[in-house]
Every structure is written in C-alpha cells, then in structure tokens.
C-alpha cells in the first residue's frame, strides 16, 4: 500500500531516460492555462503605453489633490472601495494581480506579476526566439512587451532602475492609495523642512 503511494508520487520520468523522452508536456501541471480570455487587452494597454502614462499622471495628481478628502474620511475606510475599483480597472486593463506595489509606470504598462517567475527587473534568459514565454509558450513574454511599451513612454527609462523585492504583506491592498499617502507625506515633509 505505502509502496504504491510512493510510486505514484514520483513522476514517471526516470533517470536514465533518453533525451527525447523529455519533450515539453503541454498539459503538464505547471502550464495550467489562465482561465478566460486571451491576452488581447493586456497587449492593447502596452501598445497604448504612452497614452496611459499621460492619463495616469493626471489621475495620480487628481487623487493626490483629493488627499484632504481621503484623510477626512480616513484612509482605512476608503481602502475597501478604492481596492474594489482598482482591482476591476487594472484587472481588466493589465491582468493586474494586486501585488499592492504597482510598478506599471516602470515596466512599460506590462504587469510583471503576470510573469510566471514574477520577475520585476527584466526578462529571464529563457525567452523563446519568437518572444514568447518559456513557461507558457502561448503567452508573449511579459518583459518583451514591457520593453516595447517602455520605448513608447516619455519616462520609459524608468525600466532601468532596479526594483526592490516584492513585499508580500501588501498583496491585495490598494496601490493607488499607498502612492497617494506617500506623496502627500513627502509633500508635507518638504513643506515642514522649508
């Protein structure tokens, strides 16, 4: 009984197998396709990275202008509705994963959390010659797209800055509010210093 279980847990591929036995396994567990639609909207966002950059700059400024309102209501209380909106909007446009520390402006409007390796600093060495992902052959590499998007943006060279490791405690929180709160704090700090 235990012997059987043991055997069942080890993949069939043994040690001395011939090289061609290692052909890609399209239906393998690591390649579970993402449910739903393809990558059309995500790719559209990358193609329009410049317009989105323009829009986001204005949007961020507006949200920052509303800082007194957010603090009057309490950032904690606004968090939930804001998170709802952010999840829907960014989820639709970028297949956002709500990491809570958005770097879209530095990654050509291509969300790096969609990379199966969640790389935040550029493409791995496994990108296929056709620009597709090593892990999911049907998906265009997130970072190939990020590089294309960044070339369209005014401040596209932000892709060259080294990003810090992801703070997993922020997952699921609103990145917009965090950025706004930080910008407001910084502004106040500068005002105090002056």
């Amino acid at each position: 009984m235990s012997d059987q279980t043991h055997r069942a847990m080890i993949p069939a591929a043994g040690q001395g197998r011939a090289p061609q036995a290692k052909a890609p396994r399209p239906g393998g567990p690591a390649q579970v396709a993402r449910p739903g639609r393809g990558y059309a909207v995500r790719l559209w966002s990358v193609r329009h990275a410049r317009a989105l950059e323009w829009f986001y700059r204005r949007f961020a400024r507006t949200v920052l202008l509303l800082h007194p309102l957010w603090s009057a209501l309490g950032y904690g209380r606004v968090e939930k509705p804001m998170r709802f909106v952010e999840r829907r909007v960014k989820g639709f446009m970028f297949d956002c994963r709500m990491c809570g520390q958005c770097v879209l402006s530095s990654t050509g409007m291509s969300c790096p959390m969609n990379c199966p390796k969640q790389l935040r600093n550029g493409p791995c060495g496994g990108v296929r010659a056709n620009g597709h992902c090593e892990v999911r052959p049907d998906m265009p590499c997130v970072w190939v797209k990020a590089w294309e998007g960044s070339r369209r943006m005014v401040q596209g060279d932000a892709i060259l800055t080294v990003q810090k490791p992801v703070d997993r405690t922020l997952a699921g929180t609103s990145s917009w509010l965090r950025v706004t709160a930080q910008a407001a704090a910084e502004r106040d700090h500068r005002k105090d210093a002056a």
């Binding site: 390796k117 790389l119 600093n121 490791p165 992801v166």
Partner: peptide
C-alpha cells in the same frame, strides 16, 4: 516545467536582481 518535477511549487520570491 522544464525539469523532472513539474508539479513542484515555483517560489520566485526574489528575482536574480
């Protein structure tokens, strides 16, 4: 997916950089 244990959980907590 490239290896002998495709069912493993990929970690990728950090990236090389």
């Amino acid at each position: 997916q490239a290896g002998d244990q495709p069912g493993a959980k990929p970690v990728f907590d950090l990236d090389c950089m």
